[in-house]
């Protein structure tokens, strides 16, 4: 009988105190974490559309197949629409990769910004390097090839990191479609 009081009571107290500590920590780190995310977003924006203003598009109402799109931002320079930033999550080799794509109103890629991910250093993590992302600039719809890219619409995959490379390529093609859809509205 004593067990029925002691065991739940001790676990309740331990859990309660743990919960309080976590609550405090969460409160203290909420702001810095939010700032980290904001900074990452600002850097991404600068990279894709330098010196522009951004408007977050509410009410995206995209179809189910675009469920992985987190946000779409309108990019404007001096009040004129120049393009969109499509932020989405694609599954890479080791989980989700946060991707920001800059697409002009003509469906041209201005850049690829790879955000938070857990890809393997030296392999999939190389997707963040400019050697890989730089390939996308100025292209429209692209396909992935292993080895050297010859044609205009080809992207050379990272050696031994095809899955990650494919995810980025699939993402950019999806971003172009999404920006088209949004523009029509």
């Amino acid at each position: 009988m004593r067990d029925f009081i002691k065991l739940p009571l001790v676990l309740f107290l331990v859990a309660l105190i743990a919960g309080m500590i976590l609550g405090v920590t969460n409160y203290l780190t909420k702001e810095p974490i939010r700032m980290q995310h904001e900074m990452a977003l600002r850097n991404a924006r600068e990279e894709l559309f330098p010196d522009s203003e951004f408007i977050t598009l509410e009410e995206l109402s995209l179809s189910e197949e675009n469920d992985n799109v987190i946000a779409v931002y309108e990019s404007q320079k001096d009040g004129i629409l120049v393009g969109y930033i499509v932020t989405m999550e694609k599954t890479g080799y080791a989980g989700a990769i946060l991707l920001n794509y800059g697409i002009t109103i003509d469906g041209m890629i201005t850049g690829v910004n790879v955000g938070t991910n857990s890809e393997t250093p030296g392999l999939g993590a190389k997707a963040s390097d400019v050697e890989f992302t730089g390939q996308f600039i100025g292209k429209k719809n692209v396909t992935l090839v292993k080895g050297t890219a010859i044609a205009d619409d080809e992207i050379s995959a990272i050696t031994a990191a095809t899955i990650t490379s494919q995810a980025v390529v699939d993402g950019v093609n999806q971003a172009i479609v999404v920006s088209d859809l949004v523009m029509e509205k």
């Binding site: 976590l22 920590t25 969460n26 780190t29 810095p32 974490i33 980290q36 989980g95 938070t116 857990s118």
Partner: peptide, 21 residues
């Protein structure tokens, strides 16, 4: 662990991402 995770996410985001899950 959760305290470490929250602090790491707030102060060392690149390491936080690298270590992931």
């Amino acid at each position: 662990v959760t305290v470490v995770q929250l602090v790491m996410e707030a102060t060392l985001p690149s390491l936080f991402n690298a270590l992931g899950i």
